[in-house]
Structure formats: C-alpha cells, structure tokens
C-alpha cells in the first residue's frame, strides 16, 4: 500500500520520523525566479527562524521563464506552518507558495540510487527485493549493484531497510518532488 505523508503519527502504518505533539507535516511547493542565491534565501529563512526541513528538492522547471520549483517538506504546529508559508511568500523572488498537503490532493515521489555490494545468496535476494519494489538495475558489477527506486519516501525507506542486511553501501536520495492532482497548474 502507498502511504501519504502527513498522515497521523498515531497510525500503525506511519513510517516517517515521529512528529511532536501538536505538529503536522506539510509539503510546500515554492515557485521562484531562477536566480543566483534564491535557494540560499529560502533555506536561510528556515534555519534563521528555526523551522524544520525534512526534505528539500530544487531544480529549474521552466528554462524560458527562468523559474525553478523548490519542494520543501517541513513540520510544525499549524500556527508555525502558516507563518512559514507567509514568511516564504514575502521573499522577493518567490512567486507563489502552495501547501500541497492542505490545499487538496497531491502526489509525491522520490527517487533513490541504492548501492549494494554482495555475492551469493545476498545477491540473489537483493534482486528479488528489487523486483518486488519495481526498482531498476542501473549499474552492475560481479560484486555490486546500483538500484534505482522511485515512489513515496516511505516506500524508499522500506527498500533501504531491506537492503541493509544485504550489503548496503551507499544511498543517494533526491528528496521529495510533489505536484497537485487535477488540471490546475500553480
């Protein structure tokens, strides 16, 4: 099953880090001018005001319009989350901030590259797990694989946990990319 981030921390299926009492987890999508230092402005605001960043993803999304999209997963009380949104929104090169978690349905995906070094049974088992998670082999040697796995952060967590006893060497994760469902753009 696929778990949605931001689900209650009391849920038996919740796999992410535990939330403190009264706190919620939100995914913010921030549309910014793609100019030097814009990422520093956004993350500097988070560190300067003591807000949490659980995941951060940024890349240019519109080359001609010089726009980038920053996706931030953050936690806080509803009052703090509202404050985070207002604070980010007043940064001059920020065009829009959307709270994807609270403003209707959205999809979230993350990609991870997972390196395992193994031989024998572990090698066979890691391939089985790879198939079960619909991951890809993107590099192979006689004693290692690099798997590419995509999905919700929880799915990736689970994949990594399973690879740990099978010779896990290295993990590189992209952080969450998220977008709202339905026809409307940002």
């Amino acid at each position: 099953m696929e778990l949605k981030r931001g689900s209650s921390s009391h849920s038996a299926y919740h796999l992410g880090p535990a939330l403190k009492e009264g706190e919620e987890r939100r995914t913010l999508s921030v549309l910014v001018d793609n100019e030097a230092g814009v990422l520093a402005r956004v993350i500097g605001l988070f560190s300067g005001r003591g807000y949490n960043i659980e995941s951060l993803t940024v890349a240019e999304t519109d080359h001609t319009g010089h726009r980038s999209r920053i996706t931030v997963v953050t936690t806080g009380t509803p009052m703090v989350l509202e404050q985070i949104k207002a604070q980010v929104d007043r940064i001059v090169p920020v065009h829009r901030v959307r709270d994807l978690t609270s403003e209707g349905p959205s999809v979230e995906r993350e990609l991870a590259l997972v390196k395992v070094a193994n031989v024998g049974d572990h090698r066979v088992e890691s391939l089985r797990v790879k198939d079960a998670f619909r991951a890809q082999v993107v590099d192979a040697s006689l004693e290692s694989f690099v798997f590419e796995v995509t999905g919700s952060p929880e799915k990736i967590d689970a994949f990594i946990d399973l690879m740990r006893p099978l010779g896990l060497v290295d993990v590189s994760r992209t952080g969450v990319a998220a977008i709202s469902r339905g026809p409307e753009g940002m």
């Binding site: 030097a36 230092g37 520093a40 402005r41 500097g44 605001l45 300067g48 940064i91 001059v92 090169p93």
Partner: peptide, 14 residues
C-alpha cells in the same frame, strides 16, 4: 556582502 546581508535586508542584489 550578499551572503552576510541576506538575512538583514528585505532583498539584496549583486
């Protein structure tokens, strides 16, 4: 200067 003054200005430009 831009790095130092980023949090103490409304906005800055190089």
């Amino acid at each position: 200067t831009i790095g130092i003054t980023r949090p103490c200005t409304k906005h800055n430009w190089l």
